[in-house]
């Protein structure tokens, strides 16, 4: 092939690529515009235009925060932390076997068990913890228990997915070596697999705990305990100064938990 044809080939290639990019941008723009018209069909634009006035009014009513209200929040805050922590533990306990059943190199059957484990993971992951809480409150009644279970059930998929991915990435010759000593299946897991994946596992657990603290702050909105209960009741009576304080407390909790998880992570994993 001489240089000229090569050059023109390169050029058409670029042009082809450009067409693809502009084409997909155009389609995306059309799609967005279409979605926009459907979405805003029922929007009442007077409310939207009115928003700045409403916003100024809201801020007026929100400040100053009702600082004394904090005395009622301590118990709720403690509940929130419990929901997140116990929920993470529950998720971990369920996720461990699921992860080993889902990982290609540890599952007893790629054809039957693995797809089931993967479906459990997908179902748990696609349903938000607030929806889990909604269902559990309906079944178990309002309270912390529903919150713990909601956080736990949502965490299963997240933890198991990251766990099984790290199990699939392990060094297989160490596994072979332990197998060749005559070790049983569980001994192989204990000696060859767990030590290799432990740092990744710890990281995932801490990461999920941090997320769970965030999520458990709002579970009270559907009655599943914690500080969200107070947020919901203050909103219902339009006690905006209390709402401000609760938001401040939630933000502080989230920031502190982020700080703690970063510290623990660097201590454990280094």
């Amino acid at each position: 092939m001489d240089q000229l044809t090569q050059h023109s080939l390169w050029k058409t290639n670029i042009r082809h690529k450009n067409w693809m990019v502009w084409g997909s941008c155009f389609v995306l723009a059309l799609l967005t515009a279409y979605c926009w018209t459907i979405m805003t069909e029922e929007t009442i634009w007077e409310f939207v235009y009115d928003a700045p006035v409403q916003g100024a009014d809201l801020i007026n009513r929100m400040f100053p925060p009702d600082w004394l209200y904090i005395n009622k929040l301590y118990k709720a805050l403690w509940d929130t932390i419990n929901i997140a922590t116990l929920g993470t533990l529950l998720g971990l306990i369920i996720a461990l076997p699921v992860a080993f059943l889902a990982a290609r190199n540890t599952t007893p059957s790629v054809l039957f068990v693995r797809p089931i484990a993967l479906f459990v993971i997908a179902a748990s992951r696609s349903i938000n913890s607030l929806i889990w809480a909604l269902l559990l409150v309906m079944i178990l009644g309002p309270g912390i228990l529903a919150g713990v279970l909601a956080i736990g059930l949502r965490s299963v998929g997240f933890i198991a997915k990251l766990f099984y991915e790290s199990i699939e990435e392990i060094n297989t010759t160490s596994v072979e070596a332990i197998e060749s000593t005559g070790a049983s299946h569980f001994q192989v897991i204990n000696y060859a697999i767990i030590p290799q994946v432990l740092p990744a596992f710890l990281g995932v657990i801490i990461f999920r705990w941090d997320i769970n603290i965030r999520e458990s702050t709002i579970l009270g909105l559907v009655g599943a305990g914690g500080i969200g209960l107070f947020l919901s009741s203050s909103l219902n009576v339009l006690a905006w100064p209390q709402v401000t304080l609760i938001i401040v407390v939630i933000l502080a909790t989230v920031i502190i938990s982020e700080f703690i998880s970063a510290k623990v992570r660097s201590l454990l994993i280094g």
């Binding site: 929007t43 409310f47 928003a51 916003g55 947020l231």
Partner: peptide, 18 residues
Amino acid sequence: QEVIVAIFLVALFGFGAF
């Protein structure tokens, strides 16, 4: 949390998809 943001934005802009 998205839900908390949504509470405020619903208060400002009214119920609905917007």
